[in-house]
Design a protein around this nucleic acid. Structure first.
Lengths: 246, 246
DNA sequence: CGCGGAATTGAAAATACTCAAAATTAGTGG
DNA sequence: CCACTAATTTTGAGTATTTTCAATTCCGCG
Protein backbone atom coordinates (compact mmCIF):
# COMPACT_ATOMS: atom_id res chain seq x y z
CA UNK A 1 0.00 0.00 0.00
CA UNK A 2 1.33 3.37 -0.97
CA UNK A 3 -0.11 6.74 -0.32
CA UNK A 4 -0.88 8.61 -3.47
CA UNK A 5 1.83 11.10 -4.35
CA UNK A 6 -0.53 12.90 -6.69
CA UNK A 7 -2.53 16.02 -5.84
CA UNK A 8 -5.68 14.08 -6.68
CA UNK A 9 -7.13 14.52 -3.22
CA UNK A 10 -9.02 17.75 -3.33
CA UNK A 11 -9.80 18.42 0.27
CA UNK A 12 -13.33 19.75 0.39
CA UNK A 13 -15.49 21.80 2.69
CA UNK A 14 -15.79 18.98 5.20
CA UNK A 15 -12.11 19.17 6.01
CA UNK A 16 -11.95 22.95 5.99
CA UNK A 17 -11.71 24.49 9.44
CA UNK A 18 -14.10 27.23 8.38
CA UNK A 19 -17.04 25.10 7.32
CA UNK A 20 -18.97 26.05 10.46
CA UNK A 21 -18.86 29.71 9.53
CA UNK A 22 -18.69 29.62 5.77
CA UNK A 23 -21.18 28.89 3.03
CA UNK A 24 -21.59 25.14 3.81
CA UNK A 25 -22.70 25.83 7.35
CA UNK A 26 -25.32 23.37 8.49
CA UNK A 27 -25.30 21.26 5.33
CA UNK A 28 -25.60 17.49 5.43
CA UNK A 29 -22.56 15.49 4.36
CA UNK A 30 -24.32 14.71 1.15
CA UNK A 31 -25.13 18.33 0.36
CA UNK A 32 -21.65 19.39 1.32
CA UNK A 33 -20.22 16.95 -1.18
CA UNK A 34 -22.41 18.42 -3.88
CA UNK A 35 -21.29 21.89 -2.98
CA UNK A 36 -17.69 20.70 -3.18
CA UNK A 37 -18.23 19.69 -6.77
CA UNK A 38 -19.36 23.17 -7.59
CA UNK A 39 -16.50 24.93 -5.94
CA UNK A 40 -13.83 25.71 -8.45
CA UNK A 41 -10.14 25.79 -7.91
CA UNK A 42 -8.54 27.26 -4.88
CA UNK A 43 -6.53 30.36 -5.46
CA UNK A 44 -3.57 31.59 -3.51
CA UNK A 45 -3.24 35.32 -3.30
CA UNK A 46 0.05 36.72 -2.13
CA UNK A 47 0.14 39.58 0.32
CA UNK A 48 -0.65 42.80 -1.48
CA UNK A 49 -2.05 41.06 -4.54
CA UNK A 50 -5.49 41.80 -5.85
CA UNK A 51 -8.16 39.10 -5.91
CA UNK A 52 -10.45 41.15 -8.12
CA UNK A 53 -10.74 44.64 -9.36
CA UNK A 54 -13.53 47.17 -9.45
CA UNK A 55 -15.57 47.05 -12.69
CA UNK A 56 -14.23 43.63 -13.62
CA UNK A 57 -16.97 41.24 -14.77
CA UNK A 58 -18.42 39.22 -11.97
CA UNK A 59 -18.09 35.47 -12.33
CA UNK A 60 -17.47 34.05 -8.89
CA UNK A 61 -17.82 34.59 -5.21
CA UNK A 62 -14.79 33.82 -3.09
CA UNK A 63 -14.75 32.15 0.30
CA UNK A 64 -11.65 32.90 2.33
CA UNK A 65 -9.92 29.70 3.51
CA UNK A 66 -7.18 31.49 5.35
CA UNK A 67 -5.66 34.93 5.36
CA UNK A 68 -7.10 38.42 5.39
CA UNK A 69 -8.39 40.81 2.75
CA UNK A 70 -9.47 44.39 2.49
CA UNK A 71 -12.13 45.69 0.12
CA UNK A 72 -12.13 49.27 -1.04
CA UNK A 73 -14.08 51.59 -3.23
CA UNK A 74 -12.86 54.52 -5.24
CA UNK A 75 -14.93 57.46 -6.35
CA UNK A 76 -14.63 59.66 -9.41
CA UNK A 77 -12.22 62.06 -7.74
CA UNK A 78 -9.89 59.29 -6.64
CA UNK A 79 -11.01 59.23 -3.03
CA UNK A 80 -10.69 55.76 -1.61
CA UNK A 81 -12.69 54.14 1.15
CA UNK A 82 -11.93 50.78 2.65
CA UNK A 83 -15.33 49.20 3.15
CA UNK A 84 -14.24 46.21 5.15
CA UNK A 85 -11.60 43.80 6.37
CA UNK A 86 -12.44 40.15 5.75
CA UNK A 87 -11.05 37.05 7.35
CA UNK A 88 -11.31 33.27 7.00
CA UNK A 89 -14.83 31.96 6.54
CA UNK A 90 -16.15 35.18 5.06
CA UNK A 91 -17.47 35.60 1.55
CA UNK A 92 -16.17 38.12 -0.95
CA UNK A 93 -17.93 39.51 -3.99
CA UNK A 94 -21.60 39.61 -2.98
CA UNK A 95 -21.83 43.27 -3.90
CA UNK A 96 -21.18 42.37 -7.54
CA UNK A 97 -24.27 40.23 -8.11
CA UNK A 98 -26.48 43.20 -8.80
CA UNK A 99 -24.53 44.80 -11.62
CA UNK A 100 -22.52 41.73 -12.65
CA UNK A 101 -19.42 43.84 -12.14
CA UNK A 102 -17.28 44.07 -9.07
CA UNK A 103 -18.03 47.18 -7.09
CA UNK A 104 -14.79 47.24 -5.17
CA UNK A 105 -11.22 46.05 -5.14
CA UNK A 106 -10.28 43.09 -2.96
CA UNK A 107 -6.63 42.96 -1.88
CA UNK A 108 -4.92 40.35 0.28
CA UNK A 109 -3.39 41.73 3.47
CA UNK A 110 -1.18 38.65 3.83
CA UNK A 111 -0.63 35.45 1.90
CA UNK A 112 -4.11 34.01 1.66
CA UNK A 113 -6.18 31.34 0.00
CA UNK A 114 -9.72 31.46 -1.31
CA UNK A 115 -12.20 29.02 -2.79
CA UNK A 116 -13.56 30.24 -6.07
CA UNK A 117 -17.31 29.69 -6.30
CA UNK A 118 -18.66 30.26 -9.82
CA UNK A 119 -21.90 32.03 -9.16
CA UNK A 120 -24.04 30.64 -11.95
CA UNK A 121 -23.11 27.13 -10.93
CA UNK A 122 -23.96 27.98 -7.35
CA UNK A 123 -27.32 29.30 -8.50
CA UNK A 124 -27.95 25.92 -10.06
CA UNK A 125 -27.73 24.33 -6.64
CA UNK A 126 -30.13 26.69 -4.93
CA UNK A 127 -33.19 25.03 -6.43
CA UNK A 128 -32.20 21.70 -4.98
CA UNK A 129 -30.58 22.70 -1.73
CA UNK A 130 -32.84 24.99 0.24
CA UNK A 131 -30.55 24.87 3.25
CA UNK A 132 -27.71 26.21 1.18
CA UNK A 133 -29.92 28.94 -0.19
CA UNK A 134 -31.11 29.88 3.26
CA UNK A 135 -27.61 30.21 4.56
CA UNK A 136 -26.55 32.19 1.54
CA UNK A 137 -29.34 34.64 2.26
CA UNK A 138 -28.18 34.87 5.85
CA UNK A 139 -24.69 35.72 4.69
CA UNK A 140 -25.89 38.44 2.34
CA UNK A 141 -28.20 39.84 4.97
CA UNK A 142 -25.40 39.74 7.51
CA UNK A 143 -23.27 41.76 5.14
CA UNK A 144 -26.00 44.41 4.99
CA UNK A 145 -26.19 44.54 8.77
CA UNK A 146 -22.44 44.77 9.11
CA UNK A 147 -22.36 47.71 6.75
CA UNK A 148 -25.15 49.44 8.61
CA UNK A 149 -23.04 49.18 11.72
CA UNK A 150 -20.17 50.85 9.91
CA UNK A 151 -22.51 53.60 8.82
CA UNK A 152 -23.44 54.12 12.45
CA UNK A 153 -19.77 54.24 13.30
CA UNK A 154 -18.85 56.72 10.59
CA UNK A 155 -21.88 58.92 10.95
CA UNK A 156 -22.24 59.05 14.67
CA UNK A 157 -19.10 58.36 16.60
CA UNK A 158 -16.03 60.35 17.58
CA UNK A 159 -12.59 59.08 16.75
CA UNK A 160 -12.05 57.44 20.12
CA UNK A 161 -15.25 55.43 19.94
CA UNK A 162 -14.64 54.42 16.33
CA UNK A 163 -11.30 52.99 17.20
CA UNK A 164 -12.67 51.13 20.22
CA UNK A 165 -15.42 49.63 18.04
CA UNK A 166 -12.83 48.59 15.50
CA UNK A 167 -10.72 46.78 18.08
CA UNK A 168 -13.59 45.05 19.86
CA UNK A 169 -15.03 43.98 16.54
CA UNK A 170 -11.77 42.34 15.56
CA UNK A 171 -11.56 40.73 18.98
CA UNK A 172 -15.04 39.24 18.64
CA UNK A 173 -14.33 37.85 15.20
CA UNK A 174 -11.11 36.21 16.32
CA UNK A 175 -12.94 34.74 19.30
CA UNK A 176 -15.55 33.27 16.95
CA UNK A 177 -12.71 31.53 15.11
CA UNK A 178 -11.18 30.10 18.23
CA UNK A 179 -8.34 32.59 18.48
CA UNK A 180 -7.48 34.85 21.34
CA UNK A 181 -9.73 37.86 21.61
CA UNK A 182 -7.13 39.81 23.57
CA UNK A 183 -3.98 39.18 21.60
CA UNK A 184 -3.81 39.41 17.88
CA UNK A 185 -1.86 40.82 15.03
CA UNK A 186 -3.23 43.73 13.03
CA UNK A 187 -3.05 42.59 9.44
CA UNK A 188 -3.57 46.07 8.06
CA UNK A 189 -1.47 49.21 8.16
CA UNK A 190 -2.35 52.24 10.25
CA UNK A 191 -3.23 53.92 7.02
CA UNK A 192 -5.76 51.21 6.20
CA UNK A 193 -7.28 51.49 9.65
CA UNK A 194 -7.55 55.24 9.32
CA UNK A 195 -9.11 55.01 5.91
CA UNK A 196 -11.65 52.46 7.11
CA UNK A 197 -12.56 54.55 10.15
CA UNK A 198 -12.74 57.84 8.31
CA UNK A 199 -9.68 59.18 10.14
CA UNK A 200 -6.18 60.15 9.17
CA UNK A 201 -3.21 57.95 9.87
CA UNK A 202 -2.02 60.51 12.40
CA UNK A 203 -5.25 60.31 14.32
CA UNK A 204 -5.01 56.53 14.47
CA UNK A 205 -1.49 56.78 15.74
CA UNK A 206 -2.52 59.25 18.42
CA UNK A 207 -5.41 57.05 19.49
CA UNK A 208 -3.11 54.07 19.84
CA UNK A 209 -0.75 56.11 21.94
CA UNK A 210 -3.54 57.38 24.12
CA UNK A 211 -5.06 53.95 24.68
CA UNK A 212 -1.61 52.71 25.51
CA UNK A 213 -1.05 55.51 28.02
CA UNK A 214 -4.41 54.76 29.58
CA UNK A 215 -3.43 51.14 30.01
CA UNK A 216 -6.21 49.91 27.75
CA UNK A 217 -3.85 48.02 25.52
CA UNK A 218 -0.27 47.27 24.65
CA UNK A 219 1.01 47.52 21.14
CA UNK A 220 4.29 46.52 19.58
CA UNK A 221 4.35 47.19 15.90
CA UNK A 222 1.22 45.43 14.73
CA UNK A 223 0.83 43.11 17.70
CA UNK A 224 -2.05 44.15 19.91
CA UNK A 225 -2.79 43.08 23.45
CA UNK A 226 -6.06 44.25 24.92
CA UNK A 227 -5.41 44.84 28.61
CA UNK A 228 -8.84 46.10 29.60
CA UNK A 229 -11.32 44.58 27.16
CA UNK A 230 -14.25 45.57 29.35
CA UNK A 231 -13.38 49.24 29.36
CA UNK A 232 -12.70 49.07 25.66
CA UNK A 233 -16.16 47.62 25.14
CA UNK A 234 -17.63 50.40 27.24
CA UNK A 235 -15.87 52.91 25.04
CA UNK A 236 -17.17 51.10 21.96
CA UNK A 237 -20.71 51.05 23.31
CA UNK A 238 -20.46 54.74 24.10
CA UNK A 239 -21.34 54.21 27.74
CA UNK A 240 -17.97 55.55 28.79
CA UNK A 241 -15.48 58.05 27.51
CA UNK A 242 -11.86 58.75 28.06
CA UNK A 243 -10.65 62.30 28.16
CA UNK A 244 -8.53 63.65 25.31
CA UNK A 245 -5.55 64.10 27.60
CA UNK A 246 -4.79 62.37 30.86
CA UNK B 1 -74.70 44.92 -15.19
CA UNK B 2 -73.38 46.38 -12.00
CA UNK B 3 -69.85 47.01 -10.97
CA UNK B 4 -68.88 45.14 -7.87
CA UNK B 5 -69.09 47.32 -4.81
CA UNK B 6 -66.98 44.86 -2.88
CA UNK B 7 -63.22 45.11 -2.31
CA UNK B 8 -62.84 41.67 -3.86
CA UNK B 9 -60.48 42.85 -6.56
CA UNK B 10 -57.03 42.64 -5.10
CA UNK B 11 -54.94 44.50 -7.60
CA UNK B 12 -51.68 42.60 -7.99
CA UNK B 13 -48.18 43.28 -9.08
CA UNK B 14 -49.17 43.51 -12.72
CA UNK B 15 -51.18 46.64 -12.09
CA UNK B 16 -48.66 48.20 -9.73
CA UNK B 17 -46.70 51.05 -11.23
CA UNK B 18 -43.56 49.81 -9.53
CA UNK B 19 -43.44 46.31 -10.95
CA UNK B 20 -40.56 47.22 -13.25
CA UNK B 21 -38.37 48.16 -10.29
CA UNK B 22 -39.70 45.97 -7.55
CA UNK B 23 -39.43 42.29 -6.75
CA UNK B 24 -41.53 41.03 -9.71
CA UNK B 25 -39.22 42.68 -12.23
CA UNK B 26 -38.88 40.60 -15.36
CA UNK B 27 -41.30 37.88 -14.33
CA UNK B 28 -43.70 36.27 -16.79
CA UNK B 29 -47.41 36.96 -16.29
CA UNK B 30 -47.77 33.49 -14.95
CA UNK B 31 -44.97 33.85 -12.42
CA UNK B 32 -46.22 37.24 -11.42
CA UNK B 33 -49.60 35.79 -10.63
CA UNK B 34 -47.97 33.19 -8.42
CA UNK B 35 -46.03 35.87 -6.62
CA UNK B 36 -49.27 37.78 -6.12
CA UNK B 37 -50.71 34.83 -4.26
CA UNK B 38 -47.79 34.89 -1.87
CA UNK B 39 -47.95 38.56 -1.16
CA UNK B 40 -49.91 39.18 1.98
CA UNK B 41 -52.11 42.11 2.75
CA UNK B 42 -51.22 45.61 1.91
CA UNK B 43 -50.57 47.85 4.83
CA UNK B 44 -51.06 51.55 5.06
CA UNK B 45 -48.62 53.34 7.27
CA UNK B 46 -49.45 56.88 8.28
CA UNK B 47 -46.77 59.53 8.25
CA UNK B 48 -44.55 59.14 11.27
CA UNK B 49 -45.79 55.62 12.05
CA UNK B 50 -43.42 52.74 12.41
CA UNK B 51 -43.57 49.81 9.98
CA UNK B 52 -41.34 47.69 12.15
CA UNK B 53 -39.08 48.08 15.10
CA UNK B 54 -35.54 47.07 15.87
CA UNK B 55 -35.27 43.64 17.55
CA UNK B 56 -38.80 42.68 16.56
CA UNK B 57 -39.01 39.17 15.10
CA UNK B 58 -38.62 39.07 11.37
CA UNK B 59 -41.54 37.65 9.46
CA UNK B 60 -41.88 39.61 6.27
CA UNK B 61 -40.18 41.82 3.79
CA UNK B 62 -42.05 44.90 2.68
CA UNK B 63 -42.20 46.34 -0.79
CA UNK B 64 -43.10 50.00 -0.89
CA UNK B 65 -46.07 50.69 -3.17
CA UNK B 66 -46.06 54.40 -2.59
CA UNK B 67 -44.67 56.79 -0.05
CA UNK B 68 -41.29 57.15 1.61
CA UNK B 69 -39.59 55.58 4.60
CA UNK B 70 -36.48 56.06 6.65
CA UNK B 71 -34.56 53.27 8.37
CA UNK B 72 -32.43 53.97 11.40
CA UNK B 73 -30.20 52.17 13.82
CA UNK B 74 -29.60 52.93 17.45
CA UNK B 75 -26.53 51.97 19.44
CA UNK B 76 -26.13 51.18 23.10
CA UNK B 77 -25.53 54.80 24.08
CA UNK B 78 -28.65 56.00 22.29
CA UNK B 79 -26.84 57.38 19.26
CA UNK B 80 -29.04 57.13 16.21
CA UNK B 81 -28.01 56.79 12.59
CA UNK B 82 -30.39 56.92 9.68
CA UNK B 83 -29.12 54.25 7.31
CA UNK B 84 -31.30 55.07 4.36
CA UNK B 85 -34.33 56.70 2.81
CA UNK B 86 -36.48 54.34 0.78
CA UNK B 87 -39.07 55.06 -1.86
CA UNK B 88 -41.62 53.22 -3.98
CA UNK B 89 -40.37 49.99 -5.52
CA UNK B 90 -37.74 49.43 -2.86
CA UNK B 91 -37.64 46.54 -0.44
CA UNK B 92 -37.51 46.90 3.33
CA UNK B 93 -36.31 44.37 5.86
CA UNK B 94 -33.54 42.49 4.07
CA UNK B 95 -31.13 43.18 6.91
CA UNK B 96 -33.29 41.07 9.21
CA UNK B 97 -32.92 37.75 7.38
CA UNK B 98 -29.62 36.95 9.02
CA UNK B 99 -30.67 37.20 12.66
CA UNK B 100 -34.42 36.80 12.14
CA UNK B 101 -34.81 40.06 14.00
CA UNK B 102 -35.12 43.50 12.55
CA UNK B 103 -31.87 45.39 12.76
CA UNK B 104 -33.37 48.83 12.38
CA UNK B 105 -36.52 50.85 12.73
CA UNK B 106 -38.52 51.69 9.62
CA UNK B 107 -40.66 54.81 9.84
CA UNK B 108 -42.93 56.30 7.21
CA UNK B 109 -42.02 59.84 6.16
CA UNK B 110 -45.47 60.40 4.70
CA UNK B 111 -48.64 58.37 4.36
CA UNK B 112 -47.45 55.25 2.59
CA UNK B 113 -48.46 51.78 1.53
CA UNK B 114 -46.45 48.58 1.49
CA UNK B 115 -46.98 45.01 0.33
CA UNK B 116 -46.23 42.56 3.06
CA UNK B 117 -44.24 39.59 1.76
CA UNK B 118 -44.02 36.76 4.28
CA UNK B 119 -40.49 35.58 3.90
CA UNK B 120 -40.90 31.87 4.43
CA UNK B 121 -43.62 31.79 1.83
CA UNK B 122 -41.40 33.68 -0.53
CA UNK B 123 -38.64 31.17 0.08
CA UNK B 124 -41.04 28.48 -1.02
CA UNK B 125 -41.25 30.11 -4.43
CA UNK B 126 -37.53 30.40 -4.97
CA UNK B 127 -37.13 26.73 -5.81
CA UNK B 128 -39.64 26.99 -8.60
CA UNK B 129 -39.02 30.49 -9.89
CA UNK B 130 -35.34 31.00 -10.61
CA UNK B 131 -36.01 34.36 -12.19
CA UNK B 132 -37.57 35.60 -9.01
CA UNK B 133 -34.65 34.29 -7.00
CA UNK B 134 -32.17 35.93 -9.33
CA UNK B 135 -33.84 39.27 -9.01
CA UNK B 136 -34.08 38.94 -5.28
CA UNK B 137 -30.34 38.39 -5.15
CA UNK B 138 -29.84 41.46 -7.29
CA UNK B 139 -31.88 43.49 -4.87
CA UNK B 140 -29.92 42.29 -1.86
CA UNK B 141 -26.64 42.83 -3.63
CA UNK B 142 -27.78 46.28 -4.70
CA UNK B 143 -28.48 47.09 -1.09
CA UNK B 144 -24.91 46.13 -0.19
CA UNK B 145 -23.55 48.35 -2.94
CA UNK B 146 -25.75 51.23 -1.90
CA UNK B 147 -24.46 51.00 1.64
CA UNK B 148 -20.87 50.86 0.48
CA UNK B 149 -21.49 54.11 -1.32
CA UNK B 150 -22.76 55.65 1.89
CA UNK B 151 -19.64 54.43 3.66
CA UNK B 152 -17.59 56.18 1.02
CA UNK B 153 -19.65 59.29 1.57
CA UNK B 154 -19.34 59.25 5.35
CA UNK B 155 -15.73 58.22 5.50
CA UNK B 156 -14.28 60.27 2.74
CA UNK B 157 -16.23 63.35 1.85
CA UNK B 158 -16.56 66.84 3.26
CA UNK B 159 -19.96 68.22 4.15
CA UNK B 160 -20.42 70.02 0.85
CA UNK B 161 -19.78 66.92 -1.21
CA UNK B 162 -21.95 64.75 1.01
CA UNK B 163 -24.87 67.03 0.52
CA UNK B 164 -24.34 67.21 -3.24
CA UNK B 165 -24.24 63.40 -3.38
CA UNK B 166 -27.43 63.25 -1.36
CA UNK B 167 -29.28 65.57 -3.71
CA UNK B 168 -28.05 63.99 -6.94
CA UNK B 169 -28.87 60.55 -5.59
CA UNK B 170 -32.45 61.58 -4.88
CA UNK B 171 -32.65 63.19 -8.31
CA UNK B 172 -31.51 59.99 -10.03
CA UNK B 173 -33.99 57.86 -8.13
CA UNK B 174 -36.89 60.13 -8.97
CA UNK B 175 -35.80 60.11 -12.60
CA UNK B 176 -35.83 56.29 -12.56
CA UNK B 177 -39.45 56.49 -11.41
CA UNK B 178 -40.48 58.89 -14.12
CA UNK B 179 -40.55 61.95 -11.93
CA UNK B 180 -38.68 65.16 -12.38
CA UNK B 181 -35.05 64.95 -11.41
CA UNK B 182 -34.80 68.68 -10.89
CA UNK B 183 -37.90 69.43 -8.89
CA UNK B 184 -38.98 67.38 -5.95
CA UNK B 185 -40.14 67.55 -2.41
CA UNK B 186 -37.85 66.52 0.40
CA UNK B 187 -39.83 64.01 2.40
CA UNK B 188 -37.47 64.16 5.36
CA UNK B 189 -36.65 66.87 7.86
CA UNK B 190 -33.35 68.73 7.90
CA UNK B 191 -32.58 66.80 11.02
CA UNK B 192 -33.04 63.50 9.20
CA UNK B 193 -30.81 64.66 6.37
CA UNK B 194 -28.14 65.73 8.80
CA UNK B 195 -28.31 62.49 10.71
CA UNK B 196 -28.05 60.47 7.51
CA UNK B 197 -25.09 62.50 6.26
CA UNK B 198 -23.25 62.54 9.57
CA UNK B 199 -23.77 66.28 9.96
CA UNK B 200 -25.71 68.50 12.33
CA UNK B 201 -28.96 70.11 11.38
CA UNK B 202 -27.23 73.48 11.45
CA UNK B 203 -24.66 72.34 8.94
CA UNK B 204 -27.36 71.11 6.58
CA UNK B 205 -29.16 74.39 6.89
CA UNK B 206 -25.98 76.31 6.11
CA UNK B 207 -25.26 74.09 3.11
CA UNK B 208 -28.71 74.72 1.72
CA UNK B 209 -28.23 78.44 2.15
CA UNK B 210 -24.85 78.33 0.48
CA UNK B 211 -26.04 76.28 -2.48
CA UNK B 212 -28.92 78.70 -2.81
CA UNK B 213 -26.60 81.70 -2.77
CA UNK B 214 -24.42 80.03 -5.38
CA UNK B 215 -27.44 79.55 -7.62
CA UNK B 216 -27.15 75.78 -7.55
CA UNK B 217 -30.68 75.33 -6.34
CA UNK B 218 -33.80 76.98 -5.07
CA UNK B 219 -35.55 75.84 -1.95
CA UNK B 220 -38.87 76.78 -0.43
CA UNK B 221 -39.60 74.88 2.69
CA UNK B 222 -39.09 71.31 1.54
CA UNK B 223 -39.52 71.92 -2.17
CA UNK B 224 -36.23 71.69 -4.03
CA UNK B 225 -35.42 72.89 -7.52
CA UNK B 226 -32.02 71.97 -8.86
CA UNK B 227 -30.93 74.89 -11.02
CA UNK B 228 -27.51 73.60 -12.00
CA UNK B 229 -27.67 69.81 -11.90
CA UNK B 230 -24.41 69.50 -13.81
CA UNK B 231 -22.43 71.53 -11.30
CA UNK B 232 -24.10 69.67 -8.49
CA UNK B 233 -23.00 66.41 -10.04
CA UNK B 234 -19.48 67.74 -10.34
CA UNK B 235 -19.55 68.60 -6.66
CA UNK B 236 -20.89 65.13 -5.90
CA UNK B 237 -18.21 63.48 -7.99
CA UNK B 238 -15.58 65.57 -6.26
CA UNK B 239 -14.26 66.95 -9.52
CA UNK B 240 -15.22 70.45 -8.45
CA UNK B 241 -15.50 72.36 -5.23
CA UNK B 242 -17.24 75.48 -4.11
CA UNK B 243 -15.57 77.78 -1.67
CA UNK B 244 -16.90 78.08 1.87
CA UNK B 245 -17.89 81.69 1.36
CA UNK B 246 -18.48 83.52 -1.88
C1' DC C 1 25.53 50.68 8.15
C1' DG C 2 22.41 53.24 5.67
C1' DC C 3 18.32 53.61 2.96
C1' DG C 4 13.21 53.90 2.69
C1' DG C 5 8.64 53.05 4.06
C1' DA C 6 5.81 53.20 8.13
C1' DA C 7 4.66 55.21 12.34
C1' DT C 8 4.87 58.72 15.89
C1' DT C 9 4.73 63.33 17.66
C1' DG C 10 4.10 68.40 17.62
C1' DA C 11 2.08 72.85 16.22
C1' DA C 12 -1.02 75.38 13.41
C1' DA C 13 -5.20 75.46 10.72
C1' DA C 14 -9.77 74.17 9.19
C1' DT C 15 -14.02 72.07 9.17
C1' DA C 16 -17.90 71.17 11.48
C1' DC C 17 -20.01 71.39 16.16
C1' DT C 18 -22.17 73.56 20.20
C1' DC C 19 -24.77 76.96 22.21
C1' DA C 20 -27.92 80.66 21.69
C1' DA C 21 -31.35 83.44 19.63
C1' DA C 22 -34.40 84.73 16.00
C1' DA C 23 -37.37 83.54 12.20
C1' DT C 24 -40.29 80.62 9.86
C1' DT C 25 -43.61 76.93 9.46
C1' DA C 26 -46.98 73.54 11.05
C1' DG C 27 -50.54 72.14 13.98
C1' DT C 28 -54.67 73.12 16.87
C1' DG C 29 -58.68 75.01 18.40
C1' DG C 30 -61.70 78.82 18.56
C1' DC D 1 -60.07 82.02 8.72
C1' DC D 2 -57.36 83.51 12.26
C1' DA D 3 -54.75 83.28 16.47
C1' DC D 4 -51.85 80.90 19.28
C1' DT D 5 -48.45 77.54 20.42
C1' DA D 6 -45.13 74.11 19.31
C1' DA D 7 -41.87 72.48 16.24
C1' DT D 8 -38.63 73.20 12.71
C1' DT D 9 -35.33 75.92 10.40
C1' DT D 10 -32.10 79.60 9.88
C1' DT D 11 -28.37 82.45 11.33
C1' DG D 12 -24.52 84.00 14.30
C1' DA D 13 -20.50 83.59 17.36
C1' DG D 14 -17.28 80.91 19.75
C1' DT D 15 -15.32 76.32 20.42
C1' DA D 16 -13.56 71.72 19.76
C1' DT D 17 -12.18 67.81 17.33
C1' DT D 18 -9.66 66.36 13.76
C1' DT D 19 -6.81 67.52 9.87
C1' DT D 20 -2.82 69.31 7.69
C1' DC D 21 1.85 70.17 7.45
C1' DA D 22 6.32 69.24 9.16
C1' DA D 23 9.82 66.99 11.56
C1' DT D 24 11.51 62.92 13.82
C1' DT D 25 11.80 58.22 15.04
C1' DC D 26 11.42 53.40 14.32
C1' DC D 27 12.21 49.24 11.84
C1' DG D 28 12.98 46.00 8.12
C1' DC D 29 16.06 44.98 4.61
C1' DG D 30 19.76 45.06 1.39
Amino acid sequence: MTTSPLPAIKAGCATCSMHQLCLPMGLSDNDMARLDQVIGRRRRIASGERLYQMDAPFKSLYAIRFGHFKTSQINAAGGQQITGFQMAGELLGMDAISSERHQCDAVALEDSEVCEIPFDTLEGLFGEMPNLLRHFHRMMSGEITREQNVMLLLGNMRAEQRFAVFLTNLAARYAARGYSSTQFELRMSREDIGNYLGLTIESVSRLLSRFKTLGLLAVTKRAITLREPARLQALAAGTEQCSPLV
